[in-house]
Design a binder for these strands. Sequence first.
DNA 1: CCGGATCCGCCTAGATACTG
DNA 2: CAGTATCTAGGCGGATCCGG
Lengths: 131, 131
Amino acid sequence: MNNKPIIHTKEACNAAVNAVRDTLYVVNGKWKLPMLVSLMTGPKRFKELQRELESITPKVLSKELRDLELNGFIKRTVYDTTPVTVIYERTDYADSLSNVINEMREWGMNHREHIKQMSRDEAEARKAVAV
Amino acid sequence: MNNKPIIHTKEACNAAVNAVRDTLYVVNGKWKLPMLVSLMTGPKRFKELQRELESITPKVLSKELRDLELNGFIKRTVYDTTPVTVIYERTDYADSLSNVINEMREWGMNHREHIKQMSRDEAEARKAVAV
DNA sequence: CCGGATCCGCCTAGATACTG
DNA sequence: CAGTATCTAGGCGGATCCGG
C-alpha cells in the first residue's frame, strides 16, 4: 500500500514509545539512580541515605523512596523499636534494570565523545570560513 | 579497606550515573521520540511534522528540533525557494540509539506486567485481611 | 529518628498571537 | 511556510517547620 516495508504500524510504534517513556520515567530525576547505587552496598536507614546523598532534603528523599517502592525497586521495612527503625533495601527486581542502565551508560559515554567531535568539526568549519 | 569487594569506586559510579543521565536527558520529554519515529519514514518539513505530531505547538516543535539537531540526531537543510523550504531528516547517528531504545522498550513492557502483578498481589493481600 | 505538612521560587510546556 | 514573541500555569525541587 505505501512505501513502508517494515512492521511499523502506528499502534505498534505508539506502544513502543509508551514503553520507552515508562522506562524513562521510572529512573528519571535527580536522585533515583544515586539512591539505587547507594543501596547496592547494603540496606540503609533513612538518615544514612540522606547523609550519603548529601544535599537531598528529607521531603524529597521520602518521596523518591516511595516512588522506588511503588515500582518494586526497593523494600521498606519498619522495625518496632523505640523510636522506630526503618530499613530500605534493594529488591532483586531492581537488578532487572541493569541491562538498560548499562546500555544507557555506554551510549552516554560515547555520546559525550561524539558531541566533542561535533564541536571540533564545527570550529574547523568556522576557521575555514574566517580565512 | 572497606567491605566493597568490587570495582565500584565513587568516581566511577558518578561518571556512570552522569553518562546515564546524559542518555536520559537527550531522549526525554514528550516529543523527542515521536519526532524521531516520525522522521523514520523520510525527511519532513516543519509543517509536516507539526501535522503528524498533532497538538504540538510551533514553539515547542522548534525548540525540540534544535535540541535534536544539537545532539546530532537530525540534519536541518534550508532550500532557497520563496518562501524558504526547510527540511529535517534523521542522521545515521540517530540509529546509534537503537540499542538503548530497544532495551528501554523491552524493559518498559515487562515492567508494565510486573506492576500489574504487584497490584494483583496487593489486592489479594487486602482481601485476606478484610476477611 | 523518620518523616509529614506547608510555603515558595523556578523552569518549562503550552496557548495565543504575530512576523518575514 | 517556518518559525518568533509574550504570557500564563502547573509541577517539581527545595526550605522550613512540625509531629509521632
